[in-house]
Design a protein around this nucleic acid. Structure first.
Lengths: 1327, 348
DNA sequence: CCGCTATTTAATGATATAAGTAATAGATAATAT
DNA sequence: CTATTATCTACCGACAATATCATTAAATAGCGG
């Protein structure tokens, strides 16, 4: 039993949770294969395991660092091989018998841990200690508990003075008595820090018999580098116990080894130069921008001539400032770059002299250094150093920057008088901010007060109790920051969620809460890093040393244990969010203009700028926050504005590598490997797999994607900007529509149908208007980011969706975006085209024009035939009828045209240095995988798995099949057929064919086709005809890809069965619903991707939880509520998800290999990008990896895995009344009735079977014998394999009965003749 | 031929149980009467006034009966009123088929009968077809000063998905459109008791739904299977027994006629939604949901500020009208037609 | 101080909300008698 | 058991209904011993 903290008040109470009785229940799986047990929802870790993990990360890190230092090219080559076995090596399984309760426990635990952390940070030791004690009684793993105690100790000891040594010693001595666990290395590390800090003797702590120096220094984070240095001075012999990465650092510090380490000669030169140059930032007068509050730094324009029309995108300005006008804690780092540039200028290496004060286009400098590889390398290195600091600013300081820009606008405008202030948005925001600040500060004070009082007197009133729930959290962040975050979030969310000029309250408050949490984490991460490295690297400035410091920091970021990994509950987030919204709402005002309905006069006034209201949708009440229309007009006038989340922009330095499932990507914000949908189950599996070492391949692949450097295609940006500023429609940029115009409202005496129609039209119009606006807004957003990053070298940190597909973490602008986004992106690195690259670039252009259905040679010819057009387009892209605009993907085409035209102007085009990503796309990648799985010859041919002279085009082919069918119908006199006969084009059916793999239904397909036909036939006819066509398209696809559909159906059937099966070793109440007596199907489909990633389909009925905030109650889906699975979703989604897990594996495998071969690599799921010159090599890799992936029978393997994982599960099936199984069951039931006098219910059946299995598993031979003799309905039927593994038929049929059977999966469809190795020679497999 | 002369035909009552061969398959989402004698009794007890409200029925009265289900009630009402025309409009194909059989049989005997009209009462177009195209029903246009005396609308709205019709048609009364354009046409509906509970005002705990009926209609409960509390309305209703109905769900029969009003109904609709957002909160709080500045505007009105501090659920009909009128003349009033949201706004 | 009952409070669950289903209609699961 | 009604509606990235009242469970208060 244990005592925990009731979340409402902080007094310990005594419910029972985390009972340990059920945890280690043996799994039914008794196969020879290893079955790892996930226990409860978290994988048990021992400190040893943890240390091992840490150690392995260190090793890998060092290896990587070496790569970066010296010999690039040789990364790890031994990854676990998942690819050549029919068995999945580790079938992970959750074995808790008590899923629901376990999850609830997790919820309480998670909240408690979070509260502990927060209380510690606010130095509330009384409360912390209470929490800690209550945790001691909880069923935490010892490791978790030690961690908590150590965290407490860590913070608490900081409050002690030198004289309190006794207290500290006492703490350690009574460690076990108090907490029932023993101190560990970290405890001692903390103690060491205390001693060193206070100049107390510490030798004792290094002589512990069990806690070795090694394990102490394994927690060097807690000691600090500076302190370690002091310790080492006294105990040089301990140097060996220090993690390697820091050893280097400390060696330098200790022995002044500068001279002994070979300096890199070139750098040394520059080091010398460095002194000559004055910091150019000073000359710009902006070095201390963030500290000097009153001066807005002059904005440097990066050579983009034209500003984007709406200039004032919130937050963006601050981003630009962050990028341009950075302060640095180490001015030498900055000046390294400037001195290098100065040096280059002096040596006249660049073609033109650089104006360092103006031209900060790093990309162009880089390009101009192309002929000077040495200098180029130096430049890149200097840039990296420089960016290191900028990235830090970008992630950590942008909130402050926002305030500054508002304030400055306000101050500047104040000089100009009152009117301009009214007009300026930023000035208005500054006012809101200023007015709301006292309110927020008051709230914070109130929270402090309440917390203090709660220490002595138990809280009584509801409002105090409520405040107590969030009070500890709100104190964590400065009130100013809280407000700015809130304002930015609100503006960002404007018109989201289908709400005009407003947003859902739920979304608003949670987004704000989340943003605050994330800001808090950033602060913490930054703080712990600064603490750890304090006093380091201030004095020494050798290049080599700085480099070591940088790598040490990187290492620190990927391993630091001081990192906060507790999460704030939704409760807290929502409450804090609502506090801020309330404050803002009450003070934010705006000038308004209205018309007096009586006099008709225009009236002016001041009104709240936003308000809280409810709207109704289908009888549901939704709480929304809306802006006053005058405010909306204002932001419309000044442009479409969205606040940028500065923490998730592209990164200026390489993202933190993934070594671990919860650290990677950005420096100072938490990113998980998997974008789990608030599904603890998913995380549990991923964590287990990660710690099992199964995810190495995944990490390697992601890390390759992360290091691909990008830059902005400035020429394209200039053009887009121009088009944008015109406000007119241009390609896919919609026109700027000033206002929403609705048709006149009908008289109310009219027939109701008239009003209905008017409403429909109005809704439609309004929808279009807002869609247009949001599209403009999105484009603007993209452009703003692009503009901020002109000339920069940047990276996209990636993570995965739950199926393993990779996505850039930075939203809005990345290479997964639309044609425009892609057109704006170039590889930073340039590579010579060479013969082959020149050819591929031509092919690429042809592809972008949509000429991708002809042979490669024809594509080359297409481009060659258009040389004149290419030159014209390149020279005068603005021309109204410019050729490039006709392309399928015009922006990318134009980008390619620029390169081609430049190359062609060279004497030898193959010498051209290309930055343009060239794509190789799988033709219908989903079907390719299906064909390979099924060995389907015809299917393989259709999707270019087998070699052919010309590429096959599935869509055209299907169109042909459909055409044939329609023609037939025309002959038979079908009227629809005649109408559409001549409209069946590739484009019409393309989407349907594509989505067919995802299980699109008849209705969806109809809509898709209708969309294509609307232009030709008008809305109504189009829909009518689409219904007809959809049927034929479906039939044709099914006919053409029989193999694929067999597998698709098989996958679906498996998922259906799994999704409606039950695990009977669960607690009874979790098997059958006590109320409805129906089976509770809790089993989601889980499988392991070929790369070792466990995938859990998260589809369940969602449990709603309601949170009361001071605005309103909001409803969220409770992530800790485990509900029955949504069987339908499980089976409709499984086939596509499985295929996606395969293509994800294929992509990551290819990425790893490309990385190994030093190709620049990027991917959009099934479109793989590299430099033109490397396409040939990449193509080889793609094919090899595909073959590697499919060389085993993945379907059979999947079945094996399922059988292992779901062994012993039961399924309810309908079978024929007169089948053998049915008869046996009926007999058994009859006997039971006779014997017991009551009918055998389903629960009874399950109870009996449970009992039988328990007996069989018993150690007592008698019991086993009894079990062997025992009969149950399940035992009766379990050997009738044929009957119970038949696909279940519709249960509505007559003469069927439902019985429980052991879960069996249908046989794998027979594999066809196709040999996947043919892919090797298929030119058009990816092209 | 005989159809047109129904009024002259002999009036032998229709008894559904006289057609034992017809299978009605009780299973229907509608809750319908099972026992015709109960309905006969109900009509006799509580609805005799109808006979006086519709003079000269066999020659000029029409009844439109929607979603009859098994036509127990329809038959009883038909027998009771002996109208010139009695049309049953419904989507229930199988039931209509059976009713047609009855009608055919009656006609073959030269007896007066109801007739079927297969259409969806949910669709406005059905009524245009009914009155204009098919001319299955001709209705006299009458003045709104009194209840229409030759046309009665009735029906069964006990199915969840068509409950909405009660509100829609009530608004039609207010707006004088749909079939209500012919005058103040009385409507009688079978509704689930739960729905009745929503529409009858509970003093001190008022909601928008009851406010609609209180403001725009005269509502009378004719019969109910359960007791209910409501002002004046519980005085005199017929006690129904659930066993006489096809479903085990409480049911009621109500009658509504039009009540006149003089304010902007669209503002009324909008405003009541907002003002009853949180019925327990004060009018002032709820006024904040209308639009920024609404509270201040109301505070500036002497006839309003007095009741700003009471909970919305205690608002009277007239107080709401005051609010409505205040909003109508407010220079910064909201756009009441933009009070919706777009669902699933994502699709390329 | 303990243990019992009475009272208060918190937690949970059910129901109402609006009132042309936004388009669109056909298969399938759920429900109820 | 079967007719009627309700619920879907392509995968992923993506992100959510709320107020009120009745009932139940739990916590506290009060009281007696």
């Amino acid at each position: 039993m244990l005592r925990i903290i009731r979340s409402s008040n902080l007094k310990p109470t005594n419910p029972s949770f985390l009972s340990s009785t059920s945890r280690l229940y043996p799994s039914f799986n008794t196969t020879n294969n290893v079955v790892r047990n996930l226990v409860g929802f978290s994988f048990e870790k021992t400190p040893e395991v943890k240390n091992e993990i840490k150690k392995s990360i260190e090793d890998k890190f060092l290896k990587d660092v070496n790569v970066d230092f010296k010999n690039p090219g040789s990364t790890t080559d031994t990854q676990k091989n998942y690819l050549d076995d029919n068995q999945v090596p580790n079938v992970l399984n959750i074995t808790s018998q008590n899923l629901k309760e376990h999850l609830k426990d997790e919820k309480i635990l998670s909240r408690t841990l979070s509260l502990l952390e927060v209380c510690l940070i606010t130095k509330d030791f009384t409360r912390s200690y209470q929490i800690l004690k209550s945790l001691c009684d909880a069923d935490l793993s010892p490791y978790q508990l030690i961690n908590c105690v150590n965290n407490y100790f860590d913070t608490w000891i900081n409050s002690l003075h030198k004289e309190n040594l006794n207290e500290a010693t006492e703490f350690i001595e009574s460690f076990f008595d108090n907490f029932k666990v023993n101190p560990n290395g970290k405890t001692y590390a903390i103690m060491l820090r205390y001693c060193v800090d206070h100049e107390l003797p510490f030798d004792n702590y290094l002589k512990h018999p069990i806690i070795t120096p090694r394990s102490i220094f394994g927690n060097i984070d807690s000691i600090g580098l500076d302190n370690t240095k002091i310790i080492l001075k006294q105990h040089p012999e301990l140097l060996g116990s220090i993690p390697k990465i820091y050893k280097e650092l400390l060696k330098n510090e200790l022995q002044d080894l500068n001279d002994q380490i070979e300096p890199i000669t070139n750098e040394q030169k520059i080091d010398q130069q460095l002194n000559k140059t004055k910091e150019y930032y000073d000359s710009l007068g902006q070095s201390d921008y963030f500290k000097k509050n009153d001066i807005l730094p002059p904005t440097i324009e990066k050579g983009v001539q034209k500003e984007l029309n709406p200039v004032d995108t919130f937050g963006m300005k601050s981003i630009r400032h962050a990028l341009l006008a950075l302060t640095s804690q180490n001015p030498q780092l900055e000046s390294k770059l400037s001195s290098l540039l100065q040096n280059l200028n002096e040596r006249n290496i660049l073609m033109d002299r650089l104006d360092i004060n103006k031209d900060l286009n790093f990309f162009s400098i880089y390009q101009r250094l192309a002929d000077h590889p040495k200098e180029q390398a130096l430049f890149e290195e200097a840039l990296e150093v420089y960016n290191e600091e900028r990235q830090k600013q970008l992630e950590a300081r942008s909130i402050e920057a926002s305030i500054e820009s508002w304030k400055n606008d306000h101050a500047n405008l104040q000089k100009l008088g009152i009117t301009p202030i009214r007009k300026s948005l930023n000035a208005r925001l500054w006012k809101w901010y200023n007015d709301a600040l006292p309110l927020v500060e008051k709230e914070v004070e109130e929270c402090k007060k309440v917390l203090k009082e709660a220490e002595t007197t138990p809280p009584r009133t509801a409002s105090v109790l409520n405040r107590l729930k969030y009070a500890p959290y709100i104190l964590l962040i400065d009130a100013k920051k809280l407000l700015v975050i809130a304002i930015l979030e609100l503006i960002k969310l404007n018109s989201s969620g289908g709400i005009q000029d407003g947003m859902r309250i739920a979304r608003a408050v949670i987004s704000i809460g989340r943003a605050i949490e994330s800001e808090f984490q950033s602060e913490q991460l930054l703080k712990s890093e600064n603490n750890f490295f304090k006093n380091v690297a201030k004095s020494k400035s050798s290049e080599r040393f700085q480099k070591i410091v940088r790598y040490s920091k990187k290492y620190f970021r990927s391993t630091s244990e001081t990192t906060s990994f507790t999460e704030w509950s939704y409760d807290v987030k929502a409450k804090i969010g609502s506090i801020l919204v309330t404050a803002l709402m009450s003070v934010a005002t705006i000038e308004v203009e209205g018309k007096d309905p009586i006099s008709g006069k225009v009236v002016h006034g001041e009104s709240p700028a936003m308000f809280h209201t409810f709207i109704f949708s289908g009888g549901n009440k939704i709480g929304v926050l809306k802006f006053h229309r005058s405010f909306i007009e204002k932001i419309s006038d000044e442009g479409f504005n969205k606040a940028v989340n500065p923490q998730s922009l592209p990164m200026l330095i390489k993202p933190i590598k993934w070594y671990d499932w919860k650290t990677g990507g950005y420096n100072y914000s938490k990113n998980y490997l998997i974008r789990s949908k608030d599904c603890p189950e998913q995380l549990a599996y991923v964590e287990a797999a990660s710690e099992n070492g199964d995810l190495e391949g995944v990490y390697d692949g992601l890390n390759v994607l992360g290091v691909t450097a990008w830059t902005i295609n400035k020429k394209i940006l200039d053009l887009v900007t121009e088009a944008w500023n015109s406000g007119e429609e241009f390609l896919d940029i919609p026109k700027h529509e000033k206002e929403l115009i609705l048709p006149p409202k009908p008289d109310r005496g009219e027939d109701p149908s008239v009003k209905t129609e008017w409403q429909t039209i109005s809704k439609q119009k309004s929808y279009e208007y807002y869609a247009n606006r949001s599209q403009r807004c999105d484009t603007n957003y993209k452009l703003e980011i692009a503009r901020a990053f002109v000339g920069e070298k940047f990276y996209f940190p990636h993570n995965l969706d739950f199926r393993g597909r990779a996505y850039p973490i930075s939203p809005n602008f990345n290479h997964l975006g639309n044609d425009l986004s892609r057109g704006l992106l170039l590889f930073w690195k340039g590579k010579k085209l060479g013969e082959s690259g020149f050819r591929w670039l031509k092919i690429h252009l042809s592809n972008l024009f949509g000429h991708d259905k002809v042979s490669l040679e024809d594509r080359v010819k297409f481009t060659e035939n258009n040389y004149e057009n290419i030159h014209k387009s390149a020279e005068n892209p603005q021309a109204a009828d410019a050729w490039w605009k006709k392309a399928d993907k015009p922006w990318q085409a134009l980008a390619t045209i620029f390169e081609l035209s430049q190359a062609l102007k060279l004497k030898d085009p193959t010498e051209f240095i290309s930055h343009q990503p060239v794509h190789q796309d799988g033709t219908c990648n989903g079907l390719q995988h299906y064909a390979a799985l099924g060995g389907d010859l015809e299917g393989a041919r259709q999707v270019n798995l087998s070699p052919s002279v010309k590429p096959m085009d599935v869509y055209s082919y299907v169109a042909g099949l459909v055409q044939a069918r329609v023609d037939e119908d025309v002959k038979n006199g079908k009227s629809q057929a005649a109408l559409v006969q001549h409209s069946i084009k590739r484009k019409v059916i393309k989407q349907t064919v594509m989505t067919n793999v995802y299980g699109v239904t008849y209705l969806g397909a109809t809509q898709q086709i209708a969309k294509q036909l609307t232009d030709e036939f008008g809305k109504d006819t189009a829909y009518f005809l689409s219904k007809y066509l959809a049927v034929h398209v479906f039939a044709s696809v099914r006919e053409l890809f029989q193999g694929a559909h067999l597998i698709q159906d098989w996958l679906g059937e498996c998922a259906k069965r799994i999704g409606s099966s039950v695990r009977i070793d669960l607690k009874e109440t979790e098997i059958v619903d006590p109320k409805t007596l129906k089976l509770l199907c809790m089993t989601s489909v889980i499988w392991t991707s070929p790369l070792g990633l466990p995938i859990v389909q998260p589809y369940r009925e969602d449990g709603k939880a309601v949170i009361k905030t001071n605005l309103q109650s909001i409803s969220i889906t409770d992530p800790f509520e485990l509900n029955v699975v949504n069987a339908r979703k499980q089976y409709t989604a499984f086939p596509p998800n499985f295929i996606h897990s395969l293509d994800a594996s294929h992509m990551l495998l290819s990425a790893v290999e490309c990385g190994r071969k030093e190709l620049t690599f990027a991917a959009v799921h099934d479109s793989y990008w590299t430099h033109a010159g490397d396409v040939d090599r990449m193509n080889e890799i793609i094919r090899d990896k595909f073959i590697g992936l499919h060389q085993v029978d993945l379907v059979q393997r999947l079945k094996n895995e399922f059988e292992k994982r779901y062994q012993g599960y039961l399924l309810q099936v309908s079978i024929c009344d007169d089948s053998e199984a049915a008869i046996l069951v009926k007999e058994f039931k009859k006997e039971y009735l006779a014997k017991h006098g009551e009918r055998l219910s389903m629960i009874d059946e399950i109870r009996l079977e449970k009992r039988r299995r328990a007996l069989l598993n018993s150690r007592d031979i008698n019991e086993v014998n009894e079990g062997l003799k025992m009969e149950t309905t399940i035992k009766k039927v379990q050997n009738l394999e044929e009957e119970i593994s038949k696909p279940s038929e519709a249960s509505n049929n007559k003469g069927m009965m439902k019985i429980l059977v052991p879960l069996r999966l249908p046989d794998v469809p027979p594999k066809g003749e196709f040999d996947v190795r043919e892919v090797k020679d298929s030119l058009y497999f990816f092209s | 031929m005989s159809l047109l002369k129904t009024g002259l035909a002999a009036f032998k009552p229709i008894r559904v149980d006289a057609y034992p061969s017809l299978k009605w398959k009780n299973i229907s989402g509608f809750n319908c009467a099972k026992d015709q004698s109960v309905i006969d009794d109900l009509l006799q007890e509580k609805l005799s006034f109808l006979k006086d409200s519709y003079p000269n029925r066999p020659e000029r009265m029409s009844v439109l009966d929607m979603y009859s289900g098994c036509p127990i009630y329809s038959s009883a009402l038909f027998n009771f009123l002996t109208p010139q025309k009695y049309v049953i409009m419904s989507t229930q194909k199988n039931i209509l088929k059976n009713i047609d059989k009855i009608a055919l049989d009656r006609r073959s005997q030269g007896l007066a009968t109801y007739e079927t009209y297969s259409a969806d009462p949910y669709s406005w177009a059905s009524f245009i077809a009914l009155t204009n195209l098919d001319k299955a029903l001709t209705i006299e246009k009458q003045d709104y000063s009194k209840v229409h005396d030759s046309f009665l609308i009735t029906g069964n709205l006990t199915l969840k998905t068509i409950e909405a019709l009660l509100f829609q048609w009530a608004f039609c009364m207010a707006n004088k459109n749909w079939l209500q354009r012919y005058g103040d046409v009385r409507m009688m509906f079978w509704i689930p008791f739960k729905l009745l509970n929503k529409v009858i005002p509970k003093p001190g705990n008022l909601r928008r739904m009851s406010m609609i009926f209180e403001t725009f209609t005269n509502l009378k409960v004719i019969a109910s299977s359960t007791k209910f509390d409501g002002e004046d309305l519980d005085a005199d209703y017929y006690q129904l027994d659930l066993k006489d109905f096809t479903r085990d769900e409480d049911i009621a029969l109500i009658e509504i006629t039009r009540k006149d009003f003089d304010f902007d109904i669209e503002i009324w609709e909008f405003l009541t939604k907002k003002i009853f957002s949180t019925p327990s909160a004060t009018v002032r709080t709820n006024a904040g949901f209308i639009y920024p500045g609404a509270i201040e505007w109301f505070e500036s009105k002497d006839d309003i500020k007095g009741f700003l501090n009471k909970p919305s659920k205690e608002l009277t009909k007239d107080e709401i009208v005051k609010l409505v009128n205040a909003v109508s003349v407010w220079p910064f009033k909201p756009d009441i037609y933009m009070d919706f949201h777009h669902e699933s706004a994502d699709n390329n």
